[in-house]
Design a binder for these strands. Sequence first.
DNA 1: ACTGGTTTTTAGATTATGTCTAATGTGAGA
DNA 2: TCTCACATTAGACATAATCTAAAAACCAGT
Lengths: 141, 141
Amino acid sequence: MNPEAIQRSFDGSGLRCTPQRYAVMAFLLEHNRHPTAAEIFEAVNRVDPRSSRATTYNNLRDLVKAGLVREVAIEGRAARFDAKGMQHHHFICDRCGNVEDIKWYDVPRPGPGSLGKRVLRECELIFRGLCTKCAPRRASR
Amino acid sequence: MNPEAIQRSFDGSGLRCTPQRYAVMAFLLEHNRHPTAAEIFEAVNRVDPRSSRATTYNNLRDLVKAGLVREVAIEGRAARFDAKGMQHHHFICDRCGNVEDIKWYDVPRPGPGSLGKRVLRECELIFRGLCTKCAPRRASR
DNA sequence: ACTGGTTTTTAGATTATGTCTAATGTGAGA
DNA sequence: TCTCACATTAGACATAATCTAAAAACCAGT
């Protein structure tokens, strides 16, 4: 996604394109590392303009609410963030907690019988195990 | 699951069957409400014997490590716990954060091509939307 | 029953993560 | 230019969970 596209996605969600917000989005788009809020904060502050911690959290929240970014909660660790580019599934490493993308494929939805009156918005598949780096030393945590 | 079965499942994992640990497991088994650690702590302490907060957390961790209990991380909220009885999927409410069980059905696994050298342990499906209680007032958070 | 070693529990301090507050800054439209 | 809603900020605050160090419970072997 290029700068203008980021602009446009902000416009479409009624979000101003501030330098701080732009920096967060741009960082997420050019790293599919699924960083934590703390990592994003640090990264965008290694280059100007300076952004505060509160602003980083505010912007992440706004972007998630706008549907431009996905938040991934992980047991016992900080949440991770992920620009919603192409659809994909997630692989979460038991050992290091890193999140990696798995090529998207379609998932069968539950029958209306088991959903009842619930309103389904999305449906995500999460794989767990050991990532490429951790698999060799199949250690405990 | 009856008391002896709980005993046996503890034995099988090398965990002593202490009153505090038993209380946690029994509570999880008789409520499929997916309570938070705080709720479990409060609940087991409404009846004797008293269990401390640290012990509740310790025991939950032990049970998760032993594979008897599942932990479900939820964005912006406390983790929830779930005795692993029958296999099932999870529905997480966008509005109230409650977790509900969805009848299990088999999920296609990714091809070995997209997994690479990763070691797959499990594969869970998470549905999001509004639960039965929240669907009527389809509000924002 | 006593000993020694392991596991478990405990209260409270501590850490980690994220949110809130109140003041200040910024920019788009009248 | 004025105005007002939106953004940013530093630091206080809140919440969830973990850690620490000491005491207690438990078991196996004697």
